[in-house]
Simulated scan of single mutants.
Amino acid sequence: MSEYRSLEDKLNYQFNDEQLLGLALTHRSFSNVNNERLEFLGDSILNYVISLAIFQRFDSASEGELSRMRSSLVRKETLAEIGRELDIGELIKFGIGERKSGGINRSSILADAVESIFGGILVDGGFLNASSVITRVFNKRLEKLSSDDFMKDPKSLLQEKLQDMGEPPPDYIIISTKGKSPHEVFEVACISRVLKKEARAEGASKRKAEQKAARIALTEMDRDR
């Protein structure tokens, strides 16, 4: 029996070329011929399949909300959880040093291996098979996903996201005020060192302008992921 049979059963997919699965489970510490190229493919198809799935499920969600939902599913932490559920740690080929240093349990390595497996299925069985496996693997998480969790006000979401990154809250600066009360228009800039550039927006009040700027900042952060 193949050493990968249990994993293939969990994936509900049997490789035609089992060497591809072996390659997907080969860490760079083990060989120069490793899973990094398959990881590149897997990351691409994973983002596409998950993007399409949430686009079809949440037809009223904004671009920013869809981006945040996708990020919650394809982030390294989620992929590492899936890797543990699939018990792939023991199957990954490591160099001696990496194995001794705990690579078998390292989240980043497990996450990369999961993406590599998806890439391997794409090469081995084509797009439809890879898409089907990804959808099955993520099905429970997709079912639990709620757009309400991603529709908090943008300022709160941005502050929470920055806190998770160990960053301070953003600064909001009034750039200009146009018109006279009660028809004033405020232009506000949202500034954080994690943003490539300040996020600017206009609104009929300072608060509305800040919320719009925070939404733009969130979208930019999701794009830069």
Rank of each mutant, 00 (worst) to 15 (best):
L38T: 11
G126F: 06
L38C: 09
I88C: 02
V123C: 11
V49N: 11
I121V: 12
F127S: 11
H27G: 06
G95S: 14
S62V: 12
I121R: 09
R68N: 03
S101I: 01
G64C: 04
N34P: 10
F58T: 02
H27Q: 10
I92M: 10
A111P: 10
N47Y: 08
T26Q: 07
G97C: 00
S72Y: 03
S62C: 15
R57E: 07
K93V: 14
I88L: 10
G95W: 05
L110F: 05
R99A: 12
I121H: 11
S44F: 07
I82W: 12
I109P: 01
K93H: 14
G126Q: 11
I88Q: 01
G42R: 12
I109G: 05
N47T: 06
A53R: 00
I117S: 03
H27E: 14
G126W: 14
A53C: 02
A113V: 04
S60G: 03
E77G: 04
S67I: 01
V74T: 15
I92V: 15
V49T: 15
M69Y: 04
E85A: 06
I88G: 03
S51M: 01
A61Y: 03
L46D: 09
F40T: 13
T26W: 09
I104H: 00
R106F: 02
N129W: 05
E85G: 03
F30E: 12
E90V: 01
R84K: 15
L110D: 09
I92C: 00
G126K: 09
E98W: 11
H27A: 15
A113C: 11
I121A: 06
G83C: 15
R84I: 05
I88V: 00
L122G: 02
K93D: 07
L73A: 02
S72W: 05
L46K: 10
G120Y: 07
V33G: 08
S108W: 03
G83Q: 13
L25A: 06
G89N: 02
D59E: 03
E85I: 00
F94Y: 15
A80N: 07
G97T: 10
F40Q: 12
E90P: 06
R37F: 12
F127V: 15
E98V: 02
E77C: 01
V123W: 11
I54L: 02
G119Q: 08
I45V: 15
R84D: 05
S62P: 04
K100S: 13
K93I: 13
R28K: 07
F94N: 08
I109R: 09
N129T: 08
I45L: 13
D87K: 15
